[in-house]
């Protein structure tokens, strides 16, 4: 039986259908989890997709973190369940305290939708375990607030514990230490700004996102 992956939907999320389509490509069964429900519904993994939860008003993720489903997601993560936040989902996870740091406005103060090259820095996470260490993946970015920032102490800890899982080859947004994705201490919660679901077909320009998505359901 294929793995069940829950894709969280807040009002304002917009990548949830894309994520369901991508999950089908890697043989998983995606289902939507409504933000107002206080459960993860017994799924095997949770993805918080991209979009503009609650309009990104106040700050991206600032309102979404208080949605009822987030308590269940936190509990699921604490029990070791795989949780991946993509783009807006990464912002939600940092606001919710499930990942360290914060995402600020891009260095160029513009929204940026563009191809990006990512280097796989660590394969010890639920997002990168099926990828090849040191490989470079073509995965597009699409964000205004993707400039990862954290204090020096946190950065040192992330480096020491090998928790920077993806770095930009050519930093597009000013992220500290070229960080594109990080994981928690348990390595089961990962956030990244790029969109692996947008790199799942030759017709769309790249299939490099599949290695990451396969890791989630491995």
């Amino acid at each position: 039986m294929s793995l069940r992956v829950g894709v969280v939907v807040f009002p304002g999320s917009n990548c949830e259908q894309d994520m369901l389509e991508a999950m089908a490509l890697v043989g998983a069964e995606g289902e939507l989890l409504w933000h107002g429900d206080e459960t993860t519904n017994g799924v095997d993994a949770v993805i918080i997709p991209g979009g503009f939860a609650h309009g990104d008003y106040l700050r991206p993720g600032a309102i979404a973190r208080f949605s009822p489903v987030m308590a269940a997601v936190a509990e699921f993560a604490a029990s070791g369940g795989p949780v991946v936040g993509i783009c807006n989902g990464f912002q939600v996870l940092t606001e919710a305290g499930l990942l360290p740091g914060a995402l600020q406005k891009n260095r160029g103060l513009k929204f940026l939708c563009a191809p990006a090259e990512l280097r796989v820095e660590s394969t010890d996470s639920i997002l990168t375990r099926s990828a090849e260490a040191g490989s470079v993946l073509q995965v597009p970015i699409n964000h205004f607030e993707g400039n990862y920032t954290c204090d020096a102490e946190t950065l040192a800890q992330l480096r020491d514990e090998d928790r920077i899982v993806l770095r930009y080859v050519d930093n597009p947004n000013g992220s500290v230490d070229d960080i594109a994705g990080v994981c928690n201490a348990g390595r089961n919660v990962v956030g990244l700004m790029p969109h692996p679901e947008r790199a799942t077909s030759e017709l769309l320009g790249s299939t490099d996102g599949l290695a990451l998505l396969r890791s989630i359901v491995a």
């Binding site: 894309d18 513009k110 929204f111 939708c113 597009p140 699409n142 969109h195 947008r198 769309l204």
Partner: peptide
């Protein structure tokens, strides 16, 4: 156009 999301819905060839 780099300020526009032009890829959502996984249709954009």
């Amino acid at each position: 156009f780099s300020q526009y999301d032009h890829q959502l819905f996984l249709n954009t060839v």
